[in-house]
C-alpha cells in the first residue's frame, strides 16, 4: 500500500515536470495551443465529472454554463473594459448562482426527467445566446476579446505564458476536486449516487448536497468558459450548444467517470487526437458516436477505471473507486 502510494506520487511528480516543460519541448506553437485547449476543456469535464461521475446526476446543461462563462467574461472584458482578474471570479460566481437556481427546479425531478430537463435548459441557454443579437452578436459571436491582463509582474501576452496560466487553473481544479472527493462531502456525494434513499435515511440532506455539487460543477465549468474566451479571443453560440455537452460526456467516459485522472486523460486523448488528426475532422463524430456506444457497453469505467480495476485485481486491494458508477 505504502509502496503504491510512493509510485503514484512519483508518477504525479513526473507528469507535472512534463507539463511544466511542454513549452520547451513542444515542436510548434500550434502544439501548445492544442494542449492548452484540451486543458480548458478538461476543467469543464472535471465539473461534469463531479455531478455525473460522483453524484450520478447526468446534467446536460454543462455547455450552457461553459457558454455563459465565456460570453459573460468576454463581454465584461471587451465592452466594460473590466480586468480579466475581476471578470473571472464574477463570471464563475454568476454561473454558480445560475446553477443553484436551475438546481432548485431540476433536482425536484429524478432519473430521465432530470436529464431531459437539464438538456432543455441547455437548449434554452443556447437559443437565447444565439438569438439575443443586441448583447451576444447572435450567430456572428463576439470578436476581439482582450487577452488576460497582467497580474502584478506576470504578463500573459505570449502563448507560453498563457499555457502556464491555464495549467495553473487546471492544477487548481484538480486539487480542489481531489480534496472534495476525499473529504466527507465527497463521500456523501458518492453515497447519494449509490442510493439516494439510503443516504436520505442516514440523515443526509440530498437536495442540499446535490445543489452543492451542481454549484461547484458550474463554478469550474463557467471558469473554463472564461478562460476559453480569453485564450481563443472570439466566441460564437456553438460553444453553448448541447453538442459540446455531448463532447464533454465523451471525454469523461473515455477517461473514466468518477476517477480523478479520468477527465484529463479522456480530454487530452480525444481532443488532442482530433485536433492533430485534422483529416479525421469530418468523420470524428461518426467515430465518437460509435465510441460512446462501445464504451458504455464494454468499458463503463473508461481508461482510468479500467487501469484501476487491473491494478486493484493485481494488488488485491480496492483503490479509491467504489461500486458500479451511477
Amino acid at each position: 500500500m505504502v509502496k503504491k502510494n510512493v509510485i503514484l506520487k512519483a508518477g504525479c511528480f513526473v507528469l507535472l515536470i512534463i507539463a511544466l516543460a511542454v513549452p520547451y519541448i513542444s515542436p510548434s506553437p500550434y502544439f501548445i495551443q492544442v494542449i492548452s485547449m484540451s486543458f480548458i476543456f478538461a476543467i469543464a469535464v472535471y465539473g461534469l465529472n463531479l455531478i455525473e461521475g460522483y453524484m450520478g446526476q447526468l446534467s446536460l446543461v454543462q455547455a450552457g454554463f461553459f457558454g455563459i462563462g465565456a460570453y459573460m467574461s468576454g463581454l465584461l472584458t471587451l465592452k466594460l473594459k473590466m480586468s480579466f482578474w475581476l471578470a473571472l471570479p464574477i463570471t464563475s460566481l454568476a454561473t454558480t448562482f445560475l446553477a443553484l437556481l436551475i438546481g432548485l427546479i431540476s433536482f425536484r425531478t429524478r432519473g430521465h426527467y432530470f436529464v431531459i430537463l437539464t438538456l432543455c435548459i441547455g437548449v434554452v441557454i443556447n437559443l437565447v445566446i444565439e438569438k439575443w443579437e443586441g448583447l451576444t452578436g447572435g450567430v456572428g459571436g463576439v470578436i476581439g476579446i482582450p487577452k488576460p491582463s497582467p497580474l502584478g509582474p506576470l504578463s500573459f501576452d505570449t502563448i507560453d505564458k498563457q499555457y502556464y496560466l491555464i495549467l495553473a487553473f487546471l492544477l487548481l481544479t484538480i486539487y480542489v476536486m481531489y480534496r472534495i472527493i476525499n473529504s466527507l462531502v465527497g463521500r456523501t456525494f458518492i453515497s447519494i449516487r449509490n442510493s439516494e434513499e439510503l443516504a436520505a435515511t442516514l440523515g443526509i440532506n440530498v437536495m442540499y448536497n446535490k445543489l452543492l455539487a451542481f454549484g461547484v460543477s458550474a463554478f469550474f465549468t463557467g471558469m473554463a468558459g472564461a478562460l476559453y474566451a480569453a485564450f481563443i479571443r472570439f466566441i460564437g453560440p456553438d460553444i453553448s450548444s448541447p453538442i459540446l455537452t455531448f463532447e464533454f460526456l465523451l471525454y469523461l467516459l473515455v477517461g473514466g467517470q468518477a476517477t480523478i485522472a479520468g477527465p484529463l486523460v479522456g480530454t487530452l486523448l480525444i481532443s488532442g487526437l482530433t485536433e492533430s488528426l485534422q483529416f479525421l475532422k469530418e468523420y470524428r463524430l461518426i467515430l465518437f458516436g460509435a465510441l460512446l456506444v462501445l464504451i458504455v457497453k464494454f468499458f463503463p469505467w473508461g481508461i482510468v477505471g479500467f487501469v484501476q480495476l487491473l491494478t486493484a485485481r493485481n494488488c488485491k486491494i480496492l483503490t479509491g473507486k467504489e461500486g458500479v458508477s451511477s
Partner: peptide, 24 residues
C-alpha cells in the same frame, strides 16, 4: 440491464453517429 444513464449515453452516441453519417 445497464443503469439508465448508460442507456441515455448510448442513445446520445447513436444520435451523434447518425447525424455525422448524414453529414458525411
Amino acid at each position: 440491464h445497464a443503469p439508465s444513464s448508460n442507456k441515455f449515453i448510448a442513445a446520445i452516441g447513436a444520435m451523434m453517429f447518425l447525424e455525422a453519417l448524414a453529414r458525411v
